[in-house]
Simulated assay, not measured.
Amino acid sequence: MKKTILVTGGAGFIGSNFVRHIYNTYPDYRIIVLDALTYAGHVENLPVDINEDNGSRLIFWYGNVTNGELVGTLVSQADAVVHFAAETHVTRSIYDNFLFFETDVIGTQTVANAVLKYRDRIKRFVHISTSEVYGTAYNPLMDEDHPLMPMSPYAAAKAGADRLVYSYWATYKIPAVIIRPFNNYGTQQHLEKAVPRFITSCILDEPIRLHGDGSAARDYIHAEDTCAAIDLVLHADDKLVNGEVFNVASAVDRSMLSVAKDIVSIMGADDSLITFVGDRPGQVFRHTGDISKIERVIGWRPRTDWQDGLRRTIEWYSANRKWWEKQLWMRSVPIVTQTGKKELH
C-alpha cells in the first residue's frame, strides 16, 4: 500500500463521499475510517460492506474522536489524517449545544494531540471546518480573512476547533491545513439539511418549510467537488498548504426560496408546497465564498453545474426511499424562536 489515510467521521455525509472518492481514485491506498455512528452516520454509506470486506483496503473502527487512546492508536498507523467528525446541524445545536462543543472542540483537540505525538510520520492533517464560522457576509465575497463571527452554538464550536487547529500549527508546526466548505449537497445527506428535506417533502407531497421569508442566501457546492478539493490539498506540496485556510465554494449565492423553487420545478411539484416559518435564531443571512485563493494555490475550481447536481441528487433520493424513510421523524427540530413561539424548523 502506498499510503494510509485516517478519515474521522468517514460514515457521515461529506466524509463518506470522500472515502468513496479516495477508494475509487487510489486503488493502492488503505483507508481507516473512525466513526461513532451517531444518527447522521451509516456504515451503508461506505464503498464496501464492512461485514464482508476483509479489511485489505478499508478498515472501519466504531468509536468516538474524544477517545484519546483509540485516536492515538489509529493516527500511529496513518500517513495522513482527514478530520470530518463533528456535530453539524445548526438548528439542533440551539437546544443540544453541549454535545456540539464536546465533539467539535474536544474531539478536534484529541485528534490534533495525536497528530502532534506522531508528527514524524503524519504528512498532512486536513481539518474540515465550515463557512458557518464567518457568520453573515460583510463583503460581496467572503475570503479566508473575513472576520469570524459565528452566530449559532454549532458555528461557535466549529470556530473554536478551526482556531485550535491553527494554534497547533503556529505553536508546534504540525502539518495542518484548514478547509472551510460552504453549504454542501449531494447523495447520502441526512434529511435535517435543507436540500434533502425539500426533496423528500416534494416526494411525500408535504409542506416545504422555509425560515423567515426565504431570502437568506447560501453558497451551495456539490460534495463531489468538495472531495476533489480535499484530495488536491491532501497531495499538495507542504510549502503551498501547511498552515493555510482554504474556502471551498461555488462563489454563487442562492436564496433558500430560489433553492426550494428549483427543486419544486425539477420535480414537477406545486409551488403551494412552499410554506414559511419564523426566522431561525442565529440565522446567517448571506454566505458567498471567495475561492480565488484555492484556485491560485492548487488550481481547484468546482465542476458541477447547479441544475445538473440537483437533478442527480433528486434522482438518488427518489430511488433510495428505504435509505431515508427511517429518518423522517428527524426532519423537524422543535425550537423556541426569539418571540417565544415554539416552532418546528
Rank of each mutant, 00 (worst) to 15 (best):
K3N: 02
K3F: 10
T4I: 11
T4H: 05
I5D: 00
I5E: 06
L6S: 02
L6Q: 01
V7F: 08
T8G: 12
G9W: 03
G9I: 03
G9Y: 07
A11R: 09
A11I: 03
F13M: 07
I14A: 12
I14G: 01
S16D: 10
S16P: 10
N17E: 02
N17A: 13
N17G: 14
N17M: 13
V19I: 07
H21N: 01
H21I: 09
H21E: 03
I22E: 06
I22T: 03
I22S: 00
I22V: 14
I22L: 15
T25E: 06
T25F: 00
Y26G: 04
Y26F: 14
P27E: 12
D28I: 01
Y29F: 14
R30K: 15
R30C: 07
R30L: 03
R30I: 05
I31H: 00
I32D: 08
I32S: 02
V33R: 00
V33C: 02
V33K: 04
V33F: 06
V33T: 03
L34I: 10
L34R: 07
D35F: 13
A36G: 02
A36K: 14
A36D: 11
L37A: 05
T38Y: 12
Y39N: 10
Y39H: 12
Y39V: 09
A40R: 13
A40M: 11
H42M: 12
H42E: 13
V43W: 02
E44P: 01
N45W: 09
L46F: 13
P47A: 11
P47F: 08
V48C: 01
D49I: 10
D49L: 05
D49R: 06
D49A: 02
N51D: 13
E52N: 14
E52K: 15
D53H: 15
D53F: 03
D53N: 14
N54L: 10
N54A: 09
S56N: 14
S56Q: 13
S56T: 13
R57K: 11
R57W: 06
R57I: 01
R57L: 00
L58W: 11
L58P: 00
I59K: 15
I59Y: 04
F60R: 01
W61Q: 14
W61M: 13
G63N: 01
G63T: 03
G63V: 05
G63R: 03
N64A: 04
N64F: 12
N64Y: 12
N64Q: 07
V65C: 09
V65W: 06
T66D: 06
T66C: 14
N67F: 10
N67L: 11
N67R: 08
L70G: 04
L70S: 00
L70C: 10
V71F: 07
G72W: 04
G72D: 15
G72K: 10
G72A: 01
G72L: 11
T73L: 15
S76R: 12
D79F: 10
D79A: 05
A80C: 13
V81Q: 04
V81T: 07
V82K: 00
